[in-house]
């Protein structure tokens, strides 16, 4: 019963989150560009409607099955990733003692979904987007796993409820502030945005999206936004104490914190420059990965001394 309730709330959460993300996606760039923001509320729906009624395109001998499956897989991964997020100690859509392992699997399969989307078109620009995303998606995922392990240490569990409960005294963002930054980078990477958008970038004329139109493109865009919402909720849970908070019910706190992370992610996606992929790959391995090791060690030492 509570599980059904959790699933319903979660679907609502996902829908509202996607709508909010779509609006932010117009409002924040407009803010940076110094253009009027007033159309940000209504424009996303009109744009989605326009995409929905445009016909789908086709290429010469594409991998049709893969092309259809890619956005479906991507969207499903976002929903599954979100389902392990607890709304309160007992209100979880998919109660799991190994929540972060499940989330990690969703991250890993995202690379597959994005690759499939670019591969299937049998066209050069999407293909390049597909291959280069793998180069960045894999090490970025590694980062996030070290960060998540750092969050699991004080909880002595891989379950997300326990991870939230372990933050009653102090949020994980205080224990590992750099961890939050690294996890936000992963968020940009799995939702293909800004400095980590190596699959759908401008210099490849939209990359994996270059050959899709109509409902096919709409479903891809929705899946990207869904993943963004999902990763925001996960960040809020692991670093910002999830449903913990005074007075208001748990899921309201979770929604508020997720919204905050969502704004931060969209802003970061619009604010920072993207390196060419070769430079980014070295940067990830040689700078960020050692940083995540250090972060993990710091949390370990802290627990041994004061834990």
């Amino acid at each position: 019963m509570t599980q059904m309730l959790a699933i319903l709330i979660l679907l609502l959460f996902l829908t509202a989150g996607i709508a909010a993300a779509a609006m932010l996606d117009r409002a924040i760039p407009a803010l940076v560009a110094g253009r009027p923001m007033k159309s940000s509320l209504s424009a996303p729906f009109a744009v989605a409607a326009a995409m929905a009624i445009a016909p789908k395109s086709d290429t010469e001998h594409p991998d049709r099955v893969g092309w259809v499956l890619a956005p479906i897989l991507y969207f499903t991964l976002a929903a599954v990733g979100l389902s392990v997020v607890p709304l309160s100690p007992r209100l979880v859509a998919a109660p799991s003692e190994v929540g972060i392992v499940l989330w990690g699997a969703c991250e890993a399969l995202t690379v597959v979904a994005v690759f499939l989307h670019g591969w299937s078109a049998n066209a050069p620009l999407p293909l390049m987007g597909a291959y280069r995303y793998v180069a960045i998606g894999l090490p970025a995922m590694l980062l996030s796993m070290f960060v998540l392990i750092g969050a699991a240490l004080p909880a002595q569990s891989l379950g997300l409820v326990e991870i939230v409960e372990s933050q009653r005294d102090v949020w994980n963002v205080v224990r590992q502030p750099a961890g939050l930054v690294l996890f936000l980078m992963l968020g940009l990477s799995v939702s293909l945005r800004g400095p980590f958008d190596y699959a759908d970038p401008y210099d490849l004329a939209g990359g994996t999206q270059a050959e899709v139109s109509g409902a096919a493109r709409l479903s891809w865009r929705l899946a990207r936004l869904a993943m963004l919402v999902s990763v925001s909720a996960m960040t809020a849970t692991v670093f910002l104490g999830g449903y913990l908070g005074p007075v208001l019910p748990g899921f309201v706190w979770l929604a508020l914190k997720s919204a905050l992370v969502l704004v931060a992610l969209v802003a970061a996606g619009n604010w920072f420059a993207r390196m060419p992929p070769a430079r980014m790959m070295s940067f990830l391995w040689l700078a960020l990965l050692p940083l995540s090791f250090l972060m993990l060690a710091a949390v370990g030492v802290e627990l041994l001394l004061w834990g």
Partner: peptide, 18 residues
């Protein structure tokens, strides 16, 4: 169940006919 719902929603959007 979540997988089913999410996949159905995405499949419906993907296959919407213009």
């Amino acid at each position: 169940m979540i997988v089913l719902v999410a996949a159905t929603v995405a499949a419906l959007v993907r296959s919407a006919r213009s």
